[in-house]
Design a protein around this nucleic acid. Structure first.
Length: 491
DNA sequence: CGGGTTTGACCCGCGC
DNA sequence: GCGCGGGTCAAACCCG
């Protein structure tokens, strides 16, 4: 299932596309200027009928010079023919210029309508968001009281199902697709998160319902977890595109047969998937009874050194520190993905385009066409990402660590208020015991941490990096991030 | 002996 | 309705 999907998602051409988008906003601009210059060319040639001196006018000049030359020859040869030819060329030029002008007008109109629509959408979403913010404020204060100390615990308090995020913050996050960095930042502001947290704390039944619902929908075939569809559920499904739980797929190079991620898993099945000689293994989280989280592990058909781990669901129990980092990464990714699950395919495409404009976005790819909405964090691309990273050094001043390599932790792009804050100490100060558990994935990819951070950055908030320090206060434990639906570490 | 793995059977959704 | 493929179950088996 996931193989063709992953193939599609992480195929190099997509990365090329990312490169195109990410590295060449200036290039795009440049092209735009070229177009404008060409337009100007037509204007100049027609209105002034002179010979522009700029080389960018070469094309049109050539034509004019040729006509001049031929007109000179015409005097000695067939003058009438040349005259006719000249007039024909001139009329053709006029036609082209007219057509060009029309096209430009159309383009202007389209751009204008797009901008207007974008503004209207933004206003509408802001209106929708207002009551939520008010609600969130009250909840936020309440939530702080019950927040346990410790980053990990804080993270775990927010058992924020990606699906929950989807249901409650659809509009919020969808705004982030409008290439609006400012709005993007708002999607991760506290209110919605506190709401989510409260949903779990103050209304456990309700949130459990949501959790169970999403679980039963994604793993509906499970007899143990399957719940009869109430009319409410059906109605919910009818109101929107069928509610599907996001999947987060992590591609990492590892010779190990299994990437341990800090959680305890029990294998409950193995099956040969079509199109892949490697079997797919099914695991269920056994850290807590009834934990709905499952994962699938399969090697990539093309590159068997690549281990594809697909997570689905959210843990309903506290996670060990070792498990929180990737958990928050993937849950954030899932939340981001699910926030767009109700969008049109076009929106999904735009979303991809949006991400592709972000450094490291080559590692995060989306798929709305898959049976389940899936986001893939391709950690096998880390080296390329690092090159990309360096390429963007001019645009995004990057601090390098002592080794001279890119150091994403503490990087401007690596916003603590965006990222699971527990990630910072985890990434920066890995206890030796944990380091020892680092698996072949890391061994084969020393930039794993940076790649992971890059993936996170690409998902949750890089656009904000450009605006610098809009939110300098670090939230101790980014509660806005949905709680880890997954965990990922190595051993 | 308890917990995890293996593996064939079964269920379910989907496309034809 | 049928076949196919993905996902899950559960009995048998393995292992510390």
């Amino acid at each position: 299932m996931d193989n063709p999907h992953h193939r599609q998602l992480t195929h190099p051409p997509i990365i090329k596309e990312m490169d195109f988008f990410s590295s060449n906003s200036s290039a795009t601009h440049h092209n735009k200027n070229n177009i404008n210059n060409q337009n100007k060319n037509h204007h100049q040639t027609i209105t002034a009928n002179g010979s522009p001196t700029r080389t960018t006018h070469h094309t049109v000049n050539t034509g004019l010079n040729l006509t001049c030359a031929t007109s000179g020859l015409a005097k000695t040869q067939t003058g009438q023919n040349s005259q006719a030819e000249l007039s024909a060329l001139e009329s053709q030029l006029r036609r082209l210029q007219e057509e060009n002008r029309k096209l430009r007008t159309v383009l202007d109109q389209i751009t204008k309508s797009y901008t207007q629509l974008q503004a209207q959408l933004f206003i509408a979403l802001q209106k929708q968001k207002l009551p939520q913010n008010t609600e969130g404020k009250g909840m936020g204060s309440g939530q702080k009281n019950v927040e346990p100390a410790g980053a990990c615990s804080k993270l775990e308090m927010g058992v924020n199902d990606a699906s929950v995020c989807d249901e409650k913050t659809d509009q919020d996050v969808s705004v982030s697709r409008s290439n609006n960095a400012e709005v993007m930042s708002k999607t991760h502001d506290e209110p919605q998160l506190t709401k989510l947290n409260l949903g779990k704390q103050a209304c456990p039944e309700a949130s459990e319902d949501v959790l169970d619902r999403s679980s039963s929908q994604s793993w509906g075939s499970s007899k143990l977890e399957q719940q009869p569809k109430t009319s409410e559920h059906v109605a919910a499904a009818d109101d929107r595109i069928p509610l599907r739980k996001a999947r987060v797929s992590v591609r990492a190079r590892s010779e190990a047969p299994l990437i341990s991620d800090g959680c305890q898993w029990r294998k409950y099945g193995q099956k040969m998937a079509k199109g892949n000689p490697c079997p797919r293994a099914y695991y269920r989280c056994t850290m807590a009874a009834g934990c709905p989280v499952r994962k699938q592990v399969q090697r990539c058909a093309e590159d068997k050194t690549v281990l594809i781990t697909t997570y689905e669901g959210n843990h309903n129990h506290p996670l060990p520190p070792a498990a929180t980092a990737m958990a928050n990464t993937t849950s954030a990714a899932a939340a981001m993905l699910m926030s767009g699950s109700t969008q049109s395919k076009e929106a999904q495409t735009n979303c991809a385009g949006y991400y592709s404009s972000i450094p490291y976005a080559s590692m995060a790819t989306l798929s709305a066409s898959a049976p389940f909405p899936t986001i893939t964090l391709d950690l096998t691309q880390s080296s390329k990402a690092m090159q990309l990273h360096n390429r963007h050094a001019a645009a995004f001043p990057l601090p390098l660590d002592a080794s001279g390599g890119p150091h994403l932790v503490g990087h401007p792009l690596f916003f603590p208020h965006k990222l699971p804050h527990a990630l910072l100490p985890l990434l920066q100060r890995q206890p030796p015991s944990m380091v020892e558990t680092v698996s072949a994935a890391i061994a084969s990819d020393p930039n794993f941490t940076a790649a992971l951070a890059a993936a996170i950055s690409s998902i949750i908030g890089v656009p904000r990096a450009s605006d610098g320090n809009s939110n300098p206060d670090p939230i101790p434990c980014s509660p806005q991030l949905p709680q880890s639906c997954t965990t990922f570490s190595t051993n």
